[in-house]
Amino acid sequence: MVAYLSDTETADRVFAALADATRRDIVTRVLRDEASVSALAVKYAMSFAAVQKHVAVLERAGLVTKERHGREQLVRGDVDTVRAAARLLEQYEEIWLDRIGRLEQILAEPTGGDRP
């Protein structure tokens, strides 16, 4: 089975975390390359504490992991969680694919869907 977000609460946390543009950008960035919190603070012209807060939200949602590396804290994106989030959108599409499949069956009936 493809990675699903395990429950609604997790999904809520993931999407609440991704509802913020800065946090989305942080995730995209650290998926490509890990980055220290201080390097991110420079990138976004934000205080260390402000970035730290964003990272904490992302970490609770399981979208990034944080690892101490000497004096630095390195932030890395969690590919599985991001993939699971993308999968949610696909599922909305699947609802429509399924609907159209059923709709076609009705249209294919000789009576056009009238019950005999």
Binding site: L5, D12, F15, A19, L88, Q91, Y92, I95, I100
Partner: peptide, 24 residues
């Protein structure tokens, strides 16, 4: 047939999609 679904906000889109997940 072209069906366009328009969501009122990102949050709503996410909320709906999260419910779609449950259904799925």
């Amino acid at each position: 047939m072209t069906v366009t679904s328009r969501f009122a906000s990102t949050e709503q889109m996410e909320q709906l999609v999260a419910m779609g997940m449950e259904e799925g």
